[in-house]
Design a protein around this nucleic acid. Structure first.
Lengths: 350, 350
DNA sequence: TTGTAGGCGTTATCAC
DNA sequence: GTGATAACGCCTACAA
């Protein structure tokens, strides 16, 4: 009876429960842990559980981590949470991690390798059990290093060259192909591509797919119709389009590396009095939110954001929980969402 | 000697450093901790630091947490990371937390109280030292309960009634007033308000400010021109506007509770062939990204997203690090960003 | 089936 | 100034 703590809400520990249940702490530990519960008498288990609930016992995950050297935490490396591409992916990830008993620590790198190094350092010091990385570049020494150190990770939306790191991405090739096919069917014969940075697998894959698709449509694969954006941003998209235009390139449609780059095109259209889609068609990539409300509504390749997150998380958990099994990578299907930024080619522009 | 670990990259511990430096672990601890460094001889400090760096020693935060019962982690409760309002706030928060040595655990509640309870539970079991809450409702028993338990927290963009919890919000009253003034100056005499949920302080504050502002402009404060949205969402915005329209309400402008609600209006305009801004002006609130690219570009009240995050984080850290000091709340300044969704009133509509 | 004991890596509190 | 010791809360051989 006398075991009531008058104390100021110190959370109860295993010992408190043990005391209250008249049993040894180790027994409580076993009774409360599903994996060892069988080793304890059914009656004892019940009593312990009752007492634990009564006291409002919550295991201290820090103590547990110290003992088991598992943190139940994973790190999420993204360039910029403010880019609408990522929040849905993050939500997908959490929808898997959380039921699995994991939490995620999110960091923004702004695509700065130094920042990235520091933040990953900090994540590791917090003992994360794995990493989901959305910032991978084709040549990415840091990731190679981590991989060699046995850090478990999964890449989303990206890959690294010559490296056996599992990845989950959208099917870039099909996406770009759909875009080009659509434009070709609308009579466009000279289509430009504002590619993403060629330091990223995604940028390279989409650019390569673009050239293939153009040839497959029987069109000329003219390198002067391709401009590379330094970053996946509006500003860089605008810059690249201006370059093409100033160079006097002739084209009636643009396949943008992603939606932000496409938005950059909108800025240039406004600057130069080009009307979209009458003078120029544009297709984006990713189908971010609110594209349907743009002026004009942007045609874009839809990728399964949420599923990418879900699959990435599953893959990572597999790596963690069954280190033996060789992890598989995933290519998720895409579709073209046709809106108002694409129309029949305006031949006068050529 | 025999103390060489041939082992596979077990990260070095304090003990390893101590051994290598020929000194006691406690000394290493002191030498490496800025707050206790003074207790150690300068020469020793140098040697320990050198050895630590050489071994690549990283303190184990879990062990430290166990001992100090501080996790250096805070929880971030937001309704939905996918709402563009939040990522910039999150970034602001992290920009303060990180240099302060804290990490943040982000959870989405989808505004579901039950979910919220579970997630906060889980955060607490992870020993977070404080909470930044963006989901507060005026009547919010859970938060009251937590507050009474002494959980440190700061509200962003929201307040709770009759409760001394510090908050950081934008100046809603001024924002709405600016919007109404602008519309009045454009000749609008009948202005509708699609309010946010009246269960949130923000919804109430903006609605109240709206009615004040209308009267201040010498216009009629007609309750039939106000409709409440059940959530801060596009769908609910559209729903509310349809309601008003179907009711036969006469008005030429809408002040929306936030940008998403304003976007819902766009949908209804399209449905009903109302042209904006010719027939109807709209003002949003929050100035989310990409509003300038909408059709038409949305006039909106800009709030300092990033700063809200920054100040909230500062406030929370203060609460944690100086529990004595009574925390102050903050009201951050706003401005009206005029774009194309507002124009002179079209009297024929009345 | 249950109890015992030791330790995970760190820090706080003593001594010396 | 530095060393010894204990303890944070939990888990897990091992013993009983």
């Amino acid at each position: 009876m006398s075991s009531n703590r008058p104390s100021p809400a110190q959370p109860p520990t295993l010992r408190d429960v043990a005391e209250a249940a008249g049993v040894h702490p180790a027994t409580v530990s076993r009774a409360l842990n599903p994996k060892t519960r069988t080793q304890v008498g059914a009656e004892t288990v019940r009593r312990v559980q009752r007492v634990a609930k009564a006291l409002g016992y919550q295991p201290n995950p820090i103590a547990r981590s110290l003992k088991t050297s598992r943190s139940n935490t994973i790190g999420l490396i993204i360039p910029d949470l403010t880019n609408p591409l990522f929040p849905p992916i993050v939500r997908g990830i959490e929808s898997v991690l959380e039921p699995g008993g994991y939490s995620s620590l999110i960091v923004n790198t702004d695509n700065d390798p130094e920042r990235e190094r520091v933040k990953i350092e900090s994540l590791r010091s917090r003992q994360v059990e794995g990493l989901i990385v959305a910032t991978a570049r084709l040549d990415h020494p840091l990731l190679v290093e981590l991989h060699e150190q046995g850090v478990r990770m999964v890449l989303v939306n990206r890959r690294v060259e010559d490296l056996e790191i599992p990845y989950v991405t959208a099917d870039d090739v099909t996406g770009v192909t759909l875009a080009v096919e659509r434009l070709a069917r609308l009579g466009h014969t000279r289509i430009a591509h504002l590619s993403g940075p060629q330091t990223t697998s995604t940028g390279v894959a989409r650019a390569r797919a673009f050239r293939h698709a153009v040839r497959d449509q029987g069109l000329e694969d003219d390198p002067s119709l391709i401009a590379e954006c330094a970053h996946w941003s509006e500003a860089d998209g605008a810059h690249a389009l201006r370059l093409l235009l100033d160079r006097g390139a002739q084209f009636t449609a643009v396949v943008a590396g992603n939606d932000l780059i496409a938005l950059g095109c909108y800025d240039v259209f406004a600057e130069r009095g080009i009307s979209c889609p009458e003078d120029m068609s544009v297709v984006g990539f990713n189908d971010m939110p609110f594209l349907d409300k743009l002026r004009p509504a942007l045609t874009s390749v839809r990728i399964p954001h949420h599923d990418i997150g879900v699959e990435a998380a599953h893959t990572l958990l597999e790596c963690i929980e069954e280190p033996a099994r060789p992890p598989r990578s995933l290519l998720l299907p895409v579709s073209l969402v046709v809106r108002d930024s694409t129309a029949r080619a305006n031949e006068r522009r050529l």
